[in-house]
């Protein structure tokens, strides 16, 4: 009972991102009512991929934040082993996230506790434990090359290319229908 639950929530817990992903990959397997006794052997508890994680996903960066700035802040929790900037799949320009890898799990946890939710380049950044960088993950997975969240975002975010790109595109199209001359004024990317 004790030790299970602290009287205060911990900030170094991973988000629901990976556990949700796992669930979505195994659809509806355990949802049979009432017949647990038939050949559903209790699965051996899966090894937690984040148990010794030394890597963090860092989100909500400005597109203009540099590697050096990330180093400067994140080194406060320990030496950085590797830093991979998230890039637009097509332009290969930073698109607002990165992976920071430390030498130890403890440094990664400390970073969750002390740096996640604070500001870098005057934006509140988000950190999440990550099982480790793999080639390909440095690219945005949104339709237009950046992160998915920057496709349909309705608020204007100067550090992340204005409003969502899909919305910008739609506006450009609409504008073209109305008469192309003012087209260039709208939704121009910086």
């Amino acid at each position: 009972m004790r030790g299970d639950r602290s009287t205060v929530d911990r900030l170094d817990k991973p988000s629901a991102y990976f556990s949700n992903r796992k669930q979505r990959r195994r659809p509806e397997r355990d949802h049979r009512d009432g017949d647990e006794d038939t050949n559903t052997q209790p699965e051996p508890p899966a090894e937690d991929p984040l148990k010794d994680a030394t890597t963090l996903y860092v989100g909500n960066l400005s597109f203009y934040t540099t590697e050096e700035q990330v180093y400067e802040l994140f080194s406060k929790c320990g030496e950085i082993k590797r830093l991979v900037m998230g890039l637009d799949r097509f332009n290969k320009t930073p698109c607002g996230f990165c992976f920071v890898e430390y030498y130890t799990h403890q440094d990664a946890l400390d970073c969750m506790k002390y740096i996640g939710g604070t500001k870098l380049d005057e934006r509140i950044i988000r950190t999440d434990l990550d099982p480790g960088f793999e080639e390909g993950r440095q690219y945005g997975r949104g339709k237009s090359g950046g992160q998915v969240r920057d496709e349909y975002r309705e608020d204007y975010d100067e550090g992340r290319g204005g409003i969502g790109r899909a919305i910008q595109q739609a506006e450009r199209l609409k504008d073209a229908e109305r008469g192309g001359d003012r087209q260039a004024e709208y939704g121009r990317l910086r």
């Binding site: 929530d9 900030l11 817990k13 949700n20 939710g117 509140i124 988000r126």
Partner: peptide, 22 residues
């Protein structure tokens, strides 16, 4: 930013990563 404004209140509150996404 919005993510952080939805902190859960109450005695043990204050976590920011444990609320499911909307």
């Amino acid at each position: 930013m919005a993510d952080y404004d939805r902190r859960q209140g109450g005695g043990g509150g204050g976590g920011y990563n444990n609320s499911k996404k909307r």
